[in-house]
C-alpha cells in the first residue's frame, strides 16, 4: 500500500509527457519548482510551444526553491540524456555554472529562463525584468496613496534573484520618485500563513501605515488575508496571480497587482531552443514583460491570458 503511494507521489514529481516518436527533438525544461501556480503556467506555455514546434519536452523542478543541490542533480540527469537543447531556470546564478558548462561542452544549446546565469553559456535568457516590474508595483501603490505616507514591503525570499530584484525595484522606485513616501519596514515571509501574521505585526508596529507591497503570490494571499481580518484601510499591492489574489482585487481588499507573463516565459524558452537548433541567433535577453492589473482591466484579453487561478 505504502509503496504504491510512494510511486504515485514520485510519478507526479517528474511529470513526463510521453514522447510520441523516439526520434523526436527533445528539450528538458528545468524550473525552480513545479507545485507553485506560477510554474504550472510556465509549463503550460512551454507545452503550447512544444506542440507548435513539434518537439517533446519534459518539465521538472525541485520541491522548494531552496533546494539548489536537488536542482543541480536534476540538471545533471537531464544532460546525461543527451537532449537536443535544455531550458534552465537557475536557483543560484553562479553555483550551477560548472554543470551548465558540461552541457555546453557537449554541444547542447541552453536557454535560461526566469532568472539569469552569471555566464555567457545560455544563448538567451527569457525573463521578467524584476526591477522594472517591482517599480511598476511601487508606482501603482504610490498613486493609490496620493504620493505620501508610510509604506512597507513583505518579500518572499532574502536571497533569490527574484526576491532581491523585486525588493530593490520597489525600494528604488519609491526612493527615486516619491520623496514624501517613507518605507518603514521590509520583512520576509515565505508562505501565505506566515505572510498574514507578519503583515498584521507590521500594521501593529506602524499604525499610520498607508500601503503594503507583497512580492509574490504567497505573500499577496497573506496580505489579502491580513487586510480582510483587520479591516484596515491600507492599500495593498501584490505580485503574480492566483485565484485568491484575483478575488481580493475584485472585492477591493487589494488595489492591484503586477503579473509577469509566465505563459510567455514558457513559450519563449521552447521557441528559443527551437530557433537555436535551426541555427538562428538570439538576443542575449528576451524580456517577456509585465502588466499592472486591477479590477478595471483584469478581464481584458491580453491580461486575462497571463493570469492563472
Amino acid at each position: 500500500m505504502k509503496k504504491t503511494l510512494l510511486v504515485a507521489a514520485l510519478g507526479a514529481t517528474t511529470a513526463f509527457s510521453a514522447p510520441a516518436f523516439a526520434e523526436d527533438v527533445y528539450f528538458p525544461i528545468i524550473a525552480k519548482g513545479f507545485s507553485h501556480q506560477f510554474w504550472q503556467a510556465v509549463k503550460l506555455g512551454a507545452e503550447n510551444a512544444a506542440a507548435a514546434n513539434g518537439v517533446t519536452i519534459t518539465f521538472e523542478g525541485p520541491n522548494t526553491e531552496a533546494e539548489i543541490d536537488k536542482q543541480t542533480d536534476i540538471l545533471n540527469a537531464a544532460i546525461a540524456k543527451k537532449p537536443q537543447g535544455l531550458g534552465f531556470a537557475a536557483l543560484d546564478s553562479q553555483a550551477q555554472v560548472p554543470a551548465l558548462k558540461k552541457a555546453a561542452d557537449a554541444g547542447i544549446p541552453i536557454v535560461a529562463f526566469d532568472s539569469g546565469v552569471d555566464s555567457d553559456i545560455p544563448l538567451t535568457t527569457c525573463t521578467t525584468d524584476n526591477l522594472a516590474a517591482a517599480a511598476g508595483a511601487a508606482k501603482g501603490l504610490a498613486e493609490a496613496i496620493g504620493g505620501e505616507g508610510e509604506v512597507a514591503a513583505v518579500i518572499h525570499d532574502q536571497t533569490s534573484a527574484t526576491g532581491i530584484g523585486r525588493r530593490d525595484g520597489f525600494l528604488n522606485e519609491i526612493a527615486a520618485n516619491y520623496p514624501n513616501i517613507t518605507i518603514v519596514d521590509v520583512q520576509y515571509a515565505n508562505d501565505a500563513l506566515k505572510a498574514a501574521d507578519t503583515i498584521k505585526t507590521i500594521m501593529q508596529a506602524h499604525p499610520n501605515l498607508k500601503g503594503i507591497f507583497a512580492s509574490n503570490e504567497g505573500a499577496a494571499i497573506g496580505l489579502a488575508v491580513a487586510i480582510k481580518e483587520t479591516g484596515a484601510q491600507i492599500a495593498g499591492v501584490g505580485f503574480d496571480s492566483g485565484k485568491t489574489q484575483k478575488d481580493a482585487i475584485l472585492d477591493g481588499s487589494l488595489i492591484g497587482s503586477i503579473t509577469q507573463n509566465p505563459v510567455g516565459i514558457g513559450e519563449c524558452v521552447v521557441d528559443s531552443l527551437a530557433k537555436a537548433i535551426k541555427g538562428e541567433t538570439l538576443p542575449p535577453v528576451i524580456d517577456t514583460g509585465f502588466y499592472w492589473y486591477d479590477a478595471s482591466n483584469m478581464n481584458e484579453a491580453n491580461i486575462a491570458a497571463v493570469l492563472y487561478d
Binding site: 505504502k2 510512494l6 504515485a8 507521489a9 507526479a12
Partner: peptide, 21 residues
C-alpha cells in the same frame, strides 16, 4: 520522514498541484 514526503506528494497529486478554494 517517509510519511512527510508521502503526505507532501499526495497533497500535490490530489490537488493537481493547485490550491483548492
Amino acid at each position: 520522514l517517509g510519511m512527510m514526503q508521502i503526505a507532501r506528494g499526495l497533497a500535490l497529486v490530489f490537488s493537481g498541484a493547485k490550491p483548492i478554494y
